[in-house]
């Protein structure tokens, strides 16, 4: 439509000018569907899948969900800022795990954590500056930092596997439970609550949402948008670091290849949770639901004897389906 035509159209619509949106299944699925889908999936699994409802299995689901979930709630910031995703979380998670175990073997845990933290900040800064200042495409930027990061990690580690001491603090953290909940699950929930607070209640989170919704309007409101992007990537990096700690602690081993697939599992959780890849819309809490959905789905496939390949196919298809629904819903609601 030409500007002229659009202006005329707007002029005549007049006021009060809010149309009642009729119910649209696609819109509903992309925004609220996750609550229902997750519930249905869990109920169906509990009824039909042998071994799903056992305590051991549920603990296992939690243990596996926690590191991916922590990464996903962090990466939600990058997705909401309309920068697609951060592929380099794969390198970041493995680096954090290896640093935690390898460095604490050599010296001590705080030193390991401090080093990992510096690395996380570096990742956030490099990705954020390349995307936020140089306006480079986030997918390509994080693809290259993935290779740089994994290359450095393998170079230093020589690809070897690091084992933590059997009686160390890391090990006991990895095994710790509160009731049926592993400690890692508590970390995930804490991270979710904190990041949800950051996204919805702080100045910074507000700017991330605003930037994702309309970066020009945000810039023209006088916002330093480069810092917003750097911040979103840094939060993702810090979450990836914590995810790496949890992953390393749970297995008490660390190797550079341990986080394969974290990138797309996290993305799947975020998108299925209803955060739009077009930016601006999304929620950390719903990402948590997305994590539950993806983890339960994976667990069902494992219990049904389906291999890694089928799991990947399913999650790839899930991403495309969820984005298709989001895209079609946008067309339907005309935004």
């Amino acid at each position: 439509m030409t500007n002229e035509a659009q202006s005329v159209a707007e002029a005549v619509v007049g006021e009060p000018a809010i149309e009642k949106q009729p119910f649209n299944l696609l819109v509903w699925m992309s925004s609220r569907g996750i609550f229902v889908f997750t519930t249905v999936l869990v109920v169906v699994a509990a009824i039909f899948i042998d071994g799903f409802a056992s305590l051991d299995n549920i603990t296992d689901v939690f243990n596996r969900a926690a590191p991916i979930g922590i990464v996903a709630v962090g990466m939600t910031f990058v997705v909401i800022s309309a920068n697609y995703l951060d592929l380099s979380v794969v390198a970041q998670v493995a680096t954090a795990a290896v640093v935690l175990i390898a460095v604490s073997n050599e010296s001590n845990i705080p030193a390991a954590m401090a080093l990992a933290f510096v690395i996380a900040l570096l990742y956030g800064l490099v990705n954020g500056v390349a995307v936020g200042v140089f306006k480079a495409n986030a997918v390509i930027v994080t693809l290259s930092t993935t290779f740089i990061g994994l290359g450095i990690l393998r170079w230093f580690s020589g690809g070897s596997i690091y084992f933590g001491p059997q009686d160390g603090a890391i090990r006991s953290f990895g095994l710790a439970k509160i009731g049926p909940f592993p400690l890692s699950m508590i970390v995930l929930i804490l991270m979710t609550l904190i990041l949800s607070f950051v996204l919805t209640r702080t100045n910074f989170g507000f700017l991330v949402r605003s930037y994702g919704s309309n970066r020009d309007a945000t810039r023209l409101a006088g916002v330093n948008t480069a810092w917003v992007v750097i911040g979103a990537f840094t939060i993702t990096s810090i979450a990836a670091m914590i995810g790496g700690f949890v992953l390393g602690a749970f297995s008490n081993t660390a190797v550079s290849s341990m986080s394969t697939g974290f990138d797309f599992r996290a993305l799947a959780a975020i998108i299925v949770g209803g955060t739009s890849v077009f930016g601006g819309r999304g929620s950390v809490l719903r990402t948590l639901l997305g994590v539950v959905f993806v983890s339960v789905l994976t667990n069902i496939m494992v219990l049904s004897g389906l291999g890694f390949g089928v799991q990947q196919m399913a999650i790839g298809a899930l991403i495309v389906a969820a984005v298709s629904i989001d895209s079609l819903a946008r067309k339907a609601s005309g935004t």
């Binding site: 507000f206 949402r209 605003s210 919704s213 309309n214 020009d216 309007a217 945000t218 023209l220 409101a221 006088g222 916002v223 601006g280 819309r281 935004t335």
Partner: peptide, 17 residues
């Protein structure tokens, strides 16, 4: 394109600057 973040609430838009 430049004035408003259309997918955010009026309240948020007013709060932005």
């Amino acid at each position: 394109t430049d004035g408003l973040a259309l997918t955010m609430t009026v309240s948020d838009n007013i709060a932005l600057p």
